[in-house]
Amino acid sequence: MSLKNRKLLHLSCSIVLSVLLVVTGVLLIVSCVGIYREGDSPFTRESVGAALSRIAVPGCLTLFGIVATAVLRAVFPVEEVAPRTDPYDEMTLARLKRKGTTSEVEALAHRRRVLRIEYVIALIAVTVASLLFLLKVKNYPADASYNDVVIACTLWTVLWFGLVFLHGLVTDFICRAFIKQEVRLLRETVEKTPVPAAACPLRLWLKKHKKQVLLSLRCALLVVAVVLIAFGILHGGMADVLGKAINICTECIGLG
């Protein structure tokens, strides 16, 4: 079989398998939700068995698809494409900057830095607003369902993360334009002589004594860990772990 046909075969199998997997996943979710909506204490051996038998065919097709795809790809292999280098433009920029820089590049980098600072300020503002809200949530009524409180906290946190994520995405998108421009300029005018790095005394000292600093830090953390564990054992922390591990609160692991 020619390479082109093999690639086509791989692609077709992958697409069919993807569709089967997603469909089976959706059917599983729909079955579970369907059982739940049937009424009080709906999960029984019979209802679960009936739901599983309804999705037996797509499930078996999916399993067959997985096996068939694996066999076909083994029998008709296609050499894997080597991953491209430089997945991030920033790595390219850093590498080129070590070889030299220009005033235009510096100006672009300055504008990029300003944009990042603006992003951090917005992040701090949104975080403070969220924390203020969470502090208010602390004063929920004593008889309020804690599920409702958890849902409220989660929704607010998701909203916060969503805003931060969107803002970061937009900032990053704009910054990419700057980076691409900087990389283009540097590629045109790069020189071979490297630019010496700024000499921050603390950084130089850390670089020189890296091994000793690392060893000291590891020893210190090890001692702290051992002390905490010993203290915990003496005060019954280990027994608490055992108690929780052998006596399960079913609702606490999501069986409810």
Binding site: V227, L228, F231, H235, G237, D240, V241
Partner: peptide, 8 residues
């Protein structure tokens, strides 16, 4: 009780 055992 402080969670010292688990932190450790």
């Amino acid at each position: 009780k402080a969670a010292t055992y688990m932190f450790g």
